[in-house]
Simulated scan of single mutants.
Amino acid sequence: MLIHPWDAPRSDAEWQQWLAAHDFGQLAVNGLPGEPPHVQPTHFAYDPEHGPHGRVLLHLARPNPLWPALEADPEVLLSVVDDYVYVPGPWQAPPDTPPEHGVPTSFYAAVQLRCTARVVDDPEEKADLLNLQVGHFQPEGGSAPAAVGEAPYGRMLSGIRGICLEVTDVRAKFKYASHKPAEVQERIAAGLAGRGGTHDTEAHAHQLRRR
Results as ranks from 00 to 15, higher is better:
R62Y: 02
E125P: 01
R114I: 05
V148D: 00
G102N: 12
I3S: 05
W6D: 14
R195K: 04
P99V: 01
A13E: 14
D23Q: 13
V56Q: 07
G25C: 15
L78F: 12
L58P: 11
H199G: 01
P74E: 03
A45D: 15
N64D: 07
P36H: 03
Q133E: 03
E100S: 13
K175F: 07
H136C: 09
P104I: 13
R195Y: 10
G135K: 06
Q26P: 00
E125I: 00
L192N: 08
C115M: 04
Q138W: 07
D82F: 01
I188V: 15
G102I: 11
P63H: 06
G154N: 03
T42E: 00
K180F: 12
P123C: 08
Q17W: 14
R171V: 14
L157P: 07
D122A: 14
R118F: 00
R210D: 07
R55F: 05
Y108V: 06
H59P: 13
L66A: 11
L192K: 03
V81I: 15
R210Y: 10
G194W: 04
V76P: 05
E166H: 01
E100W: 07
L19Q: 02
V120L: 04
P98K: 02
S106M: 14
H50A: 15
L58C: 09
N30S: 04
D128K: 14
Q133G: 02
P52W: 09
P74R: 02
G141F: 08
E75C: 05
H59Q: 15
G196Y: 06
L130H: 08
T105R: 00
F174T: 04
L165C: 00
A177P: 00
P36E: 06
E124A: 12
L78Q: 10
K126Y: 00
A13F: 04
Q17V: 08
G141H: 10
R62P: 01
G159N: 10
P145C: 11
D23E: 13
S106N: 11
L66Y: 08
P36K: 01
H101G: 00
A127Q: 09
E124T: 14
F107N: 08
G197N: 08
Y176C: 05
K173F: 08
A190H: 12
A69E: 06
Q26T: 10
H4N: 12
R161I: 03
S158Y: 08
P5Q: 11
K173T: 08
T201H: 11
L78K: 08
A146T: 07
R209S: 13
V81H: 05
T201W: 06
A189Y: 01
G135F: 02
G191V: 02
A127L: 03
L27F: 10
R55I: 03
L60E: 07
R195N: 09
V87L: 08
R161H: 04
H43T: 03
L77N: 11
Q92P: 00
G135Q: 04
V80R: 04
G89T: 11
H101P: 00
R161A: 02
F24P: 05
G25A: 13
R209H: 12
Q16H: 12
S143I: 15
V56A: 05
H43Q: 03
P94L: 07
W67N: 10
E35W: 00
A147Y: 01
L113G: 02
V167P: 01
A193H: 15
V29S: 01
R171M: 07
E14K: 08
A151G: 09
P36D: 06
D83H: 11
P139G: 05
T97Y: 15
